[in-house]
Write a protein that binds this DNA or RNA. Structure first.
Length: 907
RNA sequence: GGGCGGAUAGCUCAGCUGGGAGAGCACAGCCCUUACAAGGCUGGGGUCACAGGUUCGAUCCCUGUUCCGCCUACCA
């Protein structure tokens, strides 16, 4: 056995084991296996990405599930991969070539794409290494990329097929346009943020000179594109003006006053300027008019004013133009007032540039028919969303869903498989068409646009498994078992995967969706570069080790609540790693000469061993239950509690006298220690993969040792043999399920603990040094208790550091003793020569007062006729019992005080 | 505007279907006891946001209020 250092140092250990796991191919799925499959597809991180807290939490949770299931006998497939991240990646490479003084248009499409691929080879996928560092047990032999060949074929297949079914169409209408990224965006790629702006009131004169209408706007520059002013038909102030004509200032155009129900008479002046070409509302109003109002586009795709805006403004940036328009209006005396106004502004989710609605020809997916089925499968439970509260969000969105704009005016992505002929024919095809089907012309141009990145992500659960080919992976691992993701992409990704899965696989893409929280900083703020509150997971792993970091995430991943992350927590869990390390060191040092038994004969074991085995089983059952319900924090809490407060605080302390003496029990205890350590490490492994493997590999396991040619055969434990394959790595060892509990052992142990803590309380509260061995007299309240304590005297002595001078129902109370009154026992410690008695009298009086309060409360309750008659009988009985116990206790406490006073008086 | 969630110890949070509240950290006291001072033992600390209601009984269920967060939306 290698010597373990005094404290755990993760450096080197993590790489060593991850490499070994990869070499031995433990993470690879086996489609021909007879085991039950368990599959997860990773939410593909952007190829431009670098590991942040969100990834860390997401990956840790998936890895816990994957490792747990793998150890529980499943054939686990966790598919990793990356997303090509159209806009984000293109942005990165454009910035790179800009440094060389180039731009993509100068390079040309093909050369630019080549540059992006080159960038991907060089810098992309940094995040993959970071995921490995976190310990992610993905099947890396199946790593995919949304733009690789197979996935691209799936994309084309889906696009063409949807087009053929009339579910994809092309249309010209107002879209969200990012003037910086130079592309259309879907509705959900637009973020709304509130800002304080100005509401400007502008006079629009009537053409007949009879007066004017005042309109209010937050975007004065758009007035150049106005084609009407709308009022509410019910609004008496304006009813006479409907149908009249206004002279649009600056532009000099004649525009009508129209009526529309959507106009709110209470807002502004009750009159709205209508700019159909640059506002979604206005476009709707324009369409409702008969005849529809014309649209005048005054802002171009680059965010600059067009010729339609008038010669004076043409070419100006839209904000520059706003200033100019305001200036000109002011000079013309047409501004009636300006006031502060808080309103939401739409921004590009990639670059935060303010969105400009402009009219353009784009491709759309008709989502309503797809959404219906996707709603059904969640409603009828074929898919469970955990926590359930997210289902509401899901339904609300799906029921009000708009068509999905899928074309993007960028180059990096899946090019739309549509070709145009000069004759006007549009050909959508799986293969590059040779000639026009209509006119036979061969001068076909492919659509310049690419698809929204999320279009390919929507296919991820089946495209990664080989679809549209009919692969065995597809039939074995689809639908996947669970999808783990953050709520921020429920609409972007989850909903669309469900829609596409239902459409193309006629079945759900996953059974469960586990939605985890957002990782925030310690004061609850979202982490962001601009706020400077970002915590880097890599730094955490460097400083505290991956295991401590992962455990922190798991321990705080309570359902439905954000994780407020603070570095001190990781530090705390590093202490836990160290605690485990040292406990293991103790066990391995003391039990090196035996092997882990496959089974333990519990009958002959001492009480402590029986108890710890029972607690181990309870813990295993709890963890399996919690993980099955995605309660990661509970699972982490169970194992933490067990290791620290049961194994270390009690069991290891209890066995010391056995180990340090020559007793018959010694070997059994050693084996039990090893057995418990072995199982504990397995239970913990999904949370802390590295340290558990490092320790586990040092556990004497007979078969492993003999394989390595060690001298194990002389060992006493040689008769215990375990199947060798599971012994090679904890990664593939069998996950403990928990055996039968030993309730009797737990009861007996409770009595021992009661007596021990009784002595400790006296020692602690009276400030008696731990180094003094106290003389203790234990009065037991029944025969059973007495028997238990007598049988286990050795533990009592050791744990309480006490010399037990008397034990039993007749154990008298020595004069001038401190006392601890417990349920089964009373513990007395003579204070003679140790301390002043007043302190103990005070302490007991306080305890008596507490008891008195409880008694009063319970008494009142038990005198309440309503309670006695209406509360369930078992509750009443329980309260009665509690009451009587308190009475007894109080009597004893008072008795003790009295005797103590007598003794004090005599002394 | 609509919706969702939160408010429990100094801090961060648990608390499953109602039966006088727990943990970790922090704090205080005593200890270098041969696995671990990154440790051990002991202890103090809470009007469960506020006001009503249902109930024998409410941190928990219902209604309203206040304060936070988030999602969503076409008040120009």
């Amino acid at each position: 056995m290698t010597e373990l250092n005094k404290s755990y140092n993760p450096k080197g250990v993590e790489e060593k084991w991850y490499d070994r796991w990869m070499t031995d191919r433990y993470f690879e799925a086996d489609p021909s296996s007879s085991k039950k499959p368990f599959s997860i597809v990773i939410p593909p991180p952007n190829v431009t990405g670098s590991l942040h807290m969100g990834h860390a939490l997401n990956t840790t949770i998936q890895d816990i599930l994957a490792r747990w299931k793998r150890m529980s006998g499943y054939d686990v497939l966790w598919v990793p991969g990356m997303d090509h991240a159209g806009i984000a990646t293109q942005n990165v490479v454009e910035r790179q070539i800009a440094n060389e003084g180039l731009d993509r248009h100068w390079l040309g499409r093909d050369a630019f794409i080549e540059r992006v691929w080159k960038w991907k080879e060089e810098y992309g996928g940094k995040i993959i290494h970071q995921l490995k560092r976190l310990g992610a047990s993905c099947d890396w032999s199946r790593e995919r990329f949304t733009l690789d060949e197979g996935l691209s074929r799936a994309v084309v297949e889906v696009f063409v097929s949807l087009y053929e079914q009339g579910l994809i169409y092309r249309d010209k209408r107002l879209i969200n346009w990012c003037p910086r990224c130079h592309t259309a965006l879907s509705d959900i790629e637009v973020e709304h943020e509130e800002f304080e702006g100005k509401l400007t009131y502008i006079k629009y004169p009537l053409i007949d000179g009879s007066g004017h209408i005042i309109v209010a706007t937050t975007r004065p520059e758009t007035m150049l594109g106005d084609t009407a002013v709308a009022v509410n038909p019910e609004d008496a102030r304006y009813s006479d003006l409907i149908g009249k004509v206004l002279l649009l200032p600056l532009a000099g155009r004649k525009i009508p006053v129209v009526s529309d129900n959507a106009v709110d008479p209470a807002f502004g002046t009750g009159a709205v300027k209508v700019t159909p070409a640059h506002d979604f509302n206005d476009e709707a109003i324009a369409k409702r008019q008969d005849p529809p109002l014309p649209a005048v586009s005054v802002i171009g795709p680059d965010g600059r004013m067009t010729g339609e805006a008038g010669a004076k403004y043409e070419g100006m940036d839209r904000y520059e133009c706003r200033k100019a328009v305001l200036q000109d209006l002011r000079e013309a005396g047409l501004i009636s007032k300006q006031e502060k106004h808080v309103h939401a502004i739409s921004q590009c989710y990639r670059c935060k540039t303010v969105i400009e609605p402009i009219s353009a020809l784009q491709w759309y997916v008709k989502v309503k028919p797809l959404a219906e089925k996707a709603i059904d499968v969640v409603r009828n439970g074929e898919i469970d969303i955990v926590p359930k509260t997210w289902e509401n969000t899901y339904f609300a969105w799906m029921e009000n869903i708009n068509d999905w704009c899928i074309s993007r005016q960028i180059w990096w992505g899946h090019r739309i498989p549509a070709w145009y002929c000069d004759c006007g024919e549009v050909i959508v095809s799986r293969k590059v068409p040779a000639k026009c089907e209509k006119c036979g012309g061969s001068a076909l141009r492919q659509d310049e646009d690419v698809l929204d990145t999320w279009f390919s992500s929507a296919l991820w659960p089946f495209s990664t498994l080989g679809w549209p080919e009919d692969t065995r992976e597809l039939s074995r691992y689809y639908p996947t078992s669970v999808l783990v993701t953050g709520f921020d992409i429920i609409f972007f990704w989850v909903a669309r995967m469900i829609m596409m899965g239902m459409k193309f696989r006629e079945g759900v893409p996953f059974r469960d969706v586990y939605i985890h929280a957002l990782v925030r900083d310690s004061s609850g703020q979202k982490m962001s570069k601009s706020k400077g509150n970002v915590i880097d997971p890599l730094v955490m792993m460097d400083k505290y080790g991956t295991d401590a970091f992962r455990f922190t995430l798991a321990a705080f991943a309570a359902q439905g609540r954000d994780v407020k992350f603070a570095e001190e927590r990781v530090e705390g869990y590093r202490h836990f790693v160290n605690k485990l390390w040292n406990a293991s060191r103790f066990i391995l040092l003391n039990a090196a000469d035996v092997s882990v038994p496959e089974k333990i004969e519990t009958r002959k074991l001492d009480i402590g061993s029986k108890w710890i085995l029972s607690r181990l089983s309870a813990t295993a059952q709890e963890i399996n239950g919690s993980l099955g319900d995605y309660r990661f924090n509970d699972a982490a809490g169970s194992i933490y509690q067990f290791i620290w407060h049961e194994l270390c605080d009690w069991y290891i302390e209890m066995v010391k006298p056995v180990l340090y003496a020559e007793t018959d029990e010694k070997k059994q205890v050693k084996e039990c220690l090893l057995y418990v350590l072995d199982h504990t490490l397995k239970l913990l492994h999904p949370f802390m993969p590295y340290v558990t493997e490092e320790i586990w590999q040092n556990i004497p396991i007979r078969s492993r040792k003999s394989e390595e040619g060690n001298q194990i055969s002389e060992h006493a434990g040689a008769r215990y043999l375990r199947p060798s394959s599971e012994d090679k790595s904890i990664v593939i060892a069998r996950y403990p399920e928990g055996q039968l509990r030993d309730e009797k052992a737990e009861e007996e142990m409770a009595v021992i603990m009661e007596a021990v803590t009784g002595v400790r309380t006296i020692r602690g509260e009276l400030n008696l040094s731990p180094s003094i061995e106290l003389k203790v007299s234990v009065k037991t309240l029944n025969e059973k208790t007495k028997k238990i304590l007598k049988k286990n005297l050795v533990y009592l002595k050791k744990l309480a550091k006490a010399d037990i001078i008397a034990i039993g129902g007749d154990a008298g109370k020595p004069k001038g003793s401190a006392a601890a009154v417990r349920k089964h026992v009373e513990v007395y410690v003579p204070l003679e020569g140790l301390l002043n008695i007043d302190l103990e009298v005070d302490r007991l009086s306080k305890e008596g007062a507490k008891l008195e309060q409880t008694i009063l409360f319970l008494n009142k309750k038990l005198l309440n006729e309503d309670f006695l008659s209406r509360a369930p009988k078992d509750v009443v009985d329980k309260e009665k019992e509690k009451y009587e116990e308190c009475l007894r206790k109080k009597e004893r406490v008072q008795e003790n005080i009295r005797k103590l006073c007598e003794a004090g008086g005599k002394a």
